[in-house]
């Protein structure tokens, strides 16, 4: 499996994805000056901009790399030459997944360093009222990375059943959008006040979706990082467990489906 991970990483780097990211990362240089437009919270704004930029880059990567990785292998018929080697399909799939996950981690780490430098600069130029919680900032980045790794799992699962890249790409984007609001929708339909307004069907549909779709709102620690609020360690552990469980489900299902997939 390690060879597959290596090949995956090599492929991403050779496709100049990293250079593209670095080009986008140049934007970090502008963050301190852009943030100085804010009247009362320069540092907070720099943190916001940094986190949003990293999040955006990771989202693009997870959706496009995750959705096209397997699809490209099948479309370009690489699978014929690779799946026929003495490697199980599950190993191949997991190798791909861990390769992509590793790439996200590397990217997030590099971007995090850039972001921390930009924020440090902002702190030096405009000392904030509240000290910046560097730990919370790193945690926010870590959980954002986990969130997008989980999204890669969604994309891989969808590409094991799809013959085109439409389903994986759009499906992953939809899952991402939905995952941010399932919590609110769930709470909304389940409160007593909406009992009359929400039909039972809608209510059960929302419940099913709530348990089926990934709940990525829990990985969002941006507020903690921006306003220096200590995150709840217990909650973080549960979120981490949730990440592991959900990712295992995604990968297990993807491996089962990929195993049954016919390479035409």
């Amino acid at each position: 499996m390690t060879s597959i991970i290596q090949i995956t990483l090599k492929g991403i780097f050779r496709d100049r994805v990293f250079q593209g990211i670095m080009a986008l990362a140049v934007l970090f240089l502008f963050i301190p000056s852009a943030a100085s437009l804010s009247m009362r919270q320069v540092v907070e704004t720099s943190i916001t901009l940094s986190l949003s930029l990293i999040s955006f880059i990771l989202l693009l990567l997870s959706v496009f790399l995750g959705a096209t990785s397997l699809w490209k292998d099948m479309e370009r018929r690489y699978t014929f030459s690779v799946i026929s080697l003495p490697v199980s399909r599950s190993s191949y799939l997991l190798g791909r997944f861990f390769g992509l996950a590793l790439f996200l981690v590397i990217t997030a780490a590099v971007l995090a360093v850039a972001a921390l430098l930009a924020i440090k600069f902002a702190v030096l130029m405009y000392p904030p009222d509240r000290p910046v919680l560097w730990g919370a900032l790193v945690l926010a980045l870590l959980f954002a990375t986990l969130k997008y790794i989980l999204l890669v799992g969604v994309a891989l699962l969808l590409s094991t059943v799809s013959t085109s890249f439409f389903l994986p790409i759009f499906g992953t984007i939809c899952a991402f959008l939905a995952s941010g609001i399932t919590q609110q929708v769930y709470e909304y339909v389940h409160m007593p006040a909406s009992a009359n307004a929400v039909s039972p069907f809608l209510k059960s549909a929302a419940t099913v979706l709530y348990y089926l779709l990934p709940n990525l709102a829990g990985f969002d620690l941006n507020v903690n990082a921006i306003y220096g609020i200590q995150p709840n360690p217990n909650g973080l552990m549960i979120t981490l467990g949730y990440f592991l469980a959900y990712t295992s489900i995604l990968l297990g299902a993807a491996a089962l489906l990929f195993d049954r997939r016919e390479m035409q």
Binding site: R76, Y78, S81
Partner: peptide, 19 residues
């Protein structure tokens, strides 16, 4: 394991073109 002692050439083969 069955493929361990096999060399297979697919029809119109394609290989990771970034290597």
């Amino acid at each position: 394991q069955a493929r361990r002692q096999v060399g297979y050439l697919p029809e119109n083969p394609a290989f990771y073109d970034y290597l």
